[in-house]
């Protein structure tokens, strides 16, 4: 029984990480209609850049090392995302295939540059003492604290996104933009600027996922492809552009992965894709996506 509970909790904590990464992907798609194939690259860039700030501080024993790495990683990803939108994608707005290809190219370049600069050695952040170690969870026993914190962060991200989208002027503009970009522009809103803001926010979420993910699992070359694929699957299952849908998709995929690993490890990967195929066959717009 406690084994089942552990596996479910593992699935939920993994889902939290997937949600953080995929929400940015979903957000960018929702407004910009850009399938950002460089989303994984943004995850990885944030992880590595954050790490290069984190490591020297950690060596000196600074308590804020992890927070500094997190802040720098997220900020770098946000700036990187804004630049990508401003310099590359902005002037090919509406040409979806072209944008997808550009972002694929970008992700290849970024991955090779990261390999050249940081090499192939896997890296891992060590969370500050306050959230390291293990916590007693009723029915399970000792459980890694950081994985519980992951859930907290994911919930905060979800709530934050909901508040931004539903309670702020920016959110109003984003939601209007999803429905009719031209009308929004005609109302005097600087739509390209909103685009840069959204892209930057989406990239920042990928970056947040990058540092959190690199604390929970080792960060190494190839993480970009993995998290891009996961984001795609989560968003396809949950519904493109819907925050709640992304959360639902993440929970489904996270649970499927962990339960699959415990029960039929060889085929656990297939389970993920079976879910995706089923959703695509029965509800192509995703579980909570709008038709």
């Amino acid at each position: 029984m406690d084994l089942a509970a552990t596996i479910v909790l593992n699935g939920l904590t993994l889902a939290a990480l997937y949600f953080i990464v995929a929400s940015g992907f979903s957000l960018i798609f929702g407004l910009m209609r850009v399938v950002n194939m460089a989303h994984g690259a943004m995850y990885m860039v944030a992880g590595y850049v954050g790490y290069s700030v984190f490591e020297p501080l950690y060596d000196r024993g600074a308590w804020y090392a992890w927070y500094a790495g997190l802040g720098v990683g997220v900020a770098f990803a946000a700036a990187f995302g804004a630049l990508v939108q401003k310099l590359l994608l902005g002037w090919m707005q509406g040409q979806e295939l072209r944008q997808a290809l550009v972002t694929i190219g970008l992700s290849i370049i970024v991955a090779d540059q990261l390999l050249a600069v940081y090499g192939g050695t896997p890296r891992q952040f060590f969370a500050p003492d306050a959230i390291f170690g293990s916590t007693q969870v009723p029915g399970i026993g000792g459980y890694p604290t950081f994985r519980l914190v992951q859930i907290g962060i994911a919930v905060a991200v979800g709530l934050g996104l909901w508040l931004v989208l539903n309670r702020t002027k920016l959110g109003m503009m984003i939601r209007a933009g999803v429905d009719d970009r031209q009308m929004l522009g005609a109302c005097g809103v600087n739509v390209p600027l909103v685009g840069v803001a959204v892209f930057s926010l989406g990239a920042a979420l990928a970056g947040l996922g990058g540092v959190i993910g690199a604390t929970a699992q080792p960060l190494a070359q190839g993480a970009d492809g993995r998290f891009l694929l996961i984001s795609l699957v989560v968003v396809i299952v949950g519904g493109m552009g819907s925050v709640t849908g992304t959360a639902l998709g993440a929970v489904l995929i996270g649970l499927a992965e962990q339960i699959g690993q415990a029960m039929f490890p060889t085929y656990s990967v297939i389970l993920t894709f079976v879910i995706m195929v089923a959703v695509l066959a029965l509800r192509p717009q995703g579980m909570l996506g709008r038709a």
């Binding site: 084994l3 415990a262 490890p265």
Partner: peptide, 20 residues
């Protein structure tokens, strides 16, 4: 035996089983 595909980075459920 506990098998996992190459590229697995979350082994927590497998570890829970092994530890028991």
């Amino acid at each position: 035996h506990y098998w996992a595909p190459l590229g697995t980075t979350d082994f927590t459920s497998q570890i829970a089983q092994i530890n028991r």
